[in-house]
């Protein structure tokens, strides 16, 4: 069964064809980063317009890459929550038009649930139940996942998401947006031990995260606050690289520690890391080490499934369909 997935919740337009919930026949992703980069953020107005302009072409390419004709599509799955309202509406409306014309079922999919499910698509050995850390620009959430539609929130950030912390750290260090890749790159030439940032909640037995304090500590470090006088210092390459490495190490330390805590607390055998921050190399290395030590199975999807993409939407959509859940044509776009 071929499910066509559509994802337009934020600043990526993506359409994908997935067979039987796992086999990715195509996964076309067009990022709007270049359009938003001059603003160091997402411009909702630009996001909606770009989705509207590009979705048809992305849809045609997804069919072409999958080597499928339009009448070989058995169902349409679309992200309908959460996201930017205007951006979601573009995908949902397009999906409804397709479902109506093709007379196939429409399935509304939750973007975060789909990220969590994405681990299943790339890893045949991953089985329920598993602990899952969803880390992106908008989420730092740990879940216990027991079925495709059953997950329990174990804990989340109380302020900034990890990806957001990377973006803000990059802004402080005057590195390009998005911050994850640029901090990671600068960190390769820096000393992670050069500064010891406080690892918030790391000794706590609770699964919760806070990245607001380390951002402030970084700011004060590079701007040279010395308790009595406030002055700016020049950002030399060494200062930037060392600070990036120390910052990344701090965030990674916390994520690894809480991910392993989630595994211990739930007693599961597998850990999945999903979302854009799962692309971070240092995080991948450290988790691989920790999981090797404890014998836990580690599952991290390939990069194309970590960032926002429609394959995970089609994948989870298939599971819904196979279990008899479909949406009506009055499916609504829900921002939160």
């Amino acid at each position: 069964m071929n499910v066509l997935g559509i994802e337009t919740s934020c600043d990526e337009t993506s359409v994908s064809v997935v067979r039987d919930g796992r086999m990715i026949l195509s996964n076309v992703i067009r990022s709007q980063i270049e359009q938003h980069a001059p603003y160091r953020g997402v411009v909702p107005e630009i996001a909606c317009r770009a989705h509207t302009e590009e979705i048809d072409e992305i849809f045609r390419r997804a069919l072409m890459d999958a080597e499928r004709e339009i009448d070989q599509i058995d169902a349409i799955a679309v992200t309908n929550t959460p996201g930017l309202i205007g951006a979601l509406i573009v995908g949902v409306s397009f999906a409804k038009g397709l479902a109506m014309t093709l007379e196939v079922p429409l399935i509304g999919v939750n973007h975060v649930d789909a990220h969590v499910y994405s681990a299943m698509m790339a890893d045949d050995e991953l089985a329920y139940p598993y602990a899952c850390l969803a880390v992106s620009g908008g989420h730092t959430h740990a879940f216990l996942v027991t079925a495709f539609n059953e997950m329990e929130l174990l804990g989340a950030t109380i302020d900034d998401a990890a990806g957001e912390a990377f973006d803000k750290a990059a802004a402080i260090l005057e590195l390009p947006y998005p911050g994850g890749p640029s901090i990671s790159k600068a960190a390769m030439n820096g000393d992670p031990e050069s500064i010891r940032f406080k690892r918030t909640f790391i000794d706590s037995d609770e699964i919760k995260f806070s990245f607001s304090g380390v951002k402030t500590a970084l700011l004060y470090h590079v701007r040279g606050q010395n308790k009595t006088r406030w002055h700016e210092v020049e950002l030399t390459e060494k200062i930037v690289c060392d600070a990036a490495a120390a910052f990344q190490e701090c965030v990674v330390d916390v994520l690894v520690s809480k991910a392993m805590l989630a595994v211990r607390k739930t007693g599961v055998k597998s850990l999945a890391i999903v979302g854009g921050v799962a692309a971070n190399k240092r995080l991948r290395e450290r988790l691989a080490n920790e999981c090797a030590k404890t014998g836990a199975h580690l599952s991290i999807p390939p990069i194309a499934l970590c960032t926002d993409n429609a394959a995970m939407i089609a994948g989870l959509g298939y599971q819904y369909l196979a279990n008899g859940y479909v949406s009506d044509l009055d499916l609504s776009a829900v921002p939160t």
Binding site: G41, V42, P44, E45, S136, G138
Partner: peptide, 25 residues
């Protein structure tokens, strides 16, 4: 950050929390 706006309710009010940091334009 992700949706740029969160909404909350209490007994008496609706609170909308907007973060315009990434909200450009």
């Amino acid at each position: 950050t992700f949706t740029l706006m969160n909404s909350y309710t209490s007994d008496s009010v609706k609170l909308y929390h907007i973060d315009a940091y990434r909200l450009k334009g």
